[in-house]
Design a protein around this nucleic acid. Sequence first.
DNA 1: ATCCCTTATTAGACTTGCCTAATCTTTTTT
DNA 2: AAAAAAGATTAGGCAAGTCTAATAAGGGAT
Lengths: 218, 218
Amino acid sequence: MHTRSEEDHLKAVHALLQDGEAAFTKDIADRLRTKASSVTDMLKKLAEKKLVRHEPYHGVKLTAKGEAIALQLVRRHRLWETFLVDRLGFGWDEVHEVAEQLEHVASEKLIDKLDAYLGHPSFDPHGDPIPDKHGKIRARKTKRLSTCMQGDSVRIAAVSETTDGLLRLLDSKGLRIGSVLTVQEVHAFDGSMDVKPKSGAAFSLSKDVSHHLQVEPA
Amino acid sequence: MHTRSEEDHLKAVHALLQDGEAAFTKDIADRLRTKASSVTDMLKKLAEKKLVRHEPYHGVKLTAKGEAIALQLVRRHRLWETFLVDRLGFGWDEVHEVAEQLEHVASEKLIDKLDAYLGHPSFDPHGDPIPDKHGKIRARKTKRLSTCMQGDSVRIAAVSETTDGLLRLLDSKGLRIGSVLTVQEVHAFDGSMDVKPKSGAAFSLSKDVSHHLQVEPA
DNA sequence: ATCCCTTATTAGACTTGCCTAATCTTTTTT
DNA sequence: AAAAAAGATTAGGCAAGTCTAATAAGGGAT
């Protein structure tokens, strides 16, 4: 259907569009650990295939067709992550790279059966929503922990960066999806935040960390 | 580690070595649906990497290193087939292409965990042995059904060609791994064979079919 | 308004894996 | 044994995807 590289670019664009109007060449290149010139080439190719709309020098957006493909890739990725953690016993910090490979296996039947086998999960091990067969995503009203105020009591809904480092840091603090926290103090100086878990002593989280934690009211 | 194409070539060589002293360029090309000249190129590359020994015009063999890699690929392929059939509910005639993709996902941990999850199976859904982590294969003394004589009573141990067509034909006759058959008559003319299952009426199997059925004494 | 700096794009080259066509080798047939 | 056929290799080329270096565009800051 599409090459691995095309799929990777579509997924990168999709991810960048989550927090921005358009995706830019440099950001795509950084994400794919490749060079801007390579990305320009690929964007040209994807634009010809009507999967993206590319305004040179002003970023790129997905067409409906491109978005549909990207959502299928996200679906595959998150279903595989769920399988790896729930069934094979991987840690949530170990699954990203493997899922990155598995998501490119092209077989609709495989994904449908895997989905059924896992019980049609709505969220992956990082709390991110899994698009259904038609690309529909279960909506939730979450916000970043970094936007919370002193006194707020929240439940961790998702971790929006799946790098090992962040996940292991959370593990070390005993934090996981579903953990409930109360914000005790926010330090204006560095944006760091003192939080207290339901049971146990309070501790501090840097802005880097709180920025990547999606939470909902507890 | 190695490219997909390198892996495909190694596996093809390994498969051809199962019934022959050496693997030949044309046979490898046919198996991979590619051209002989492309295979020559790749053999040169694999020979440089010390994965095969190539005698131009006289075929190719695997080095110990090449064989170890091929066995890991066979292991991965058969474990995935087992997963697809036993866990996801695929038919045994539907899994080959998908496993062909899954086997190239590179993660030793993934395979080890999958193996454990499946209960360290020794045979895949087609009855073929699954090499263990170290490439060891559980030995069995099977022979082709086509070499059996009138009166022999045998159990189907494996199907040595996993093309959809053959597997669906077996399905239609009610044959599967473990089925017990008695040879009633062998026709010299075309090598076809009349067999009778444990329960049910006798039927005929062409030589094409009986050649690909591995059996053991019942 | 111009200069500078960042970001994008183009140009040209390289690698991998594949192909066709031409040339060898080996085997088979007559 | 010579000719023919089958198979293998080499030579040269092509497409995909990447890179570096050179050029162009846009967005501040002065």
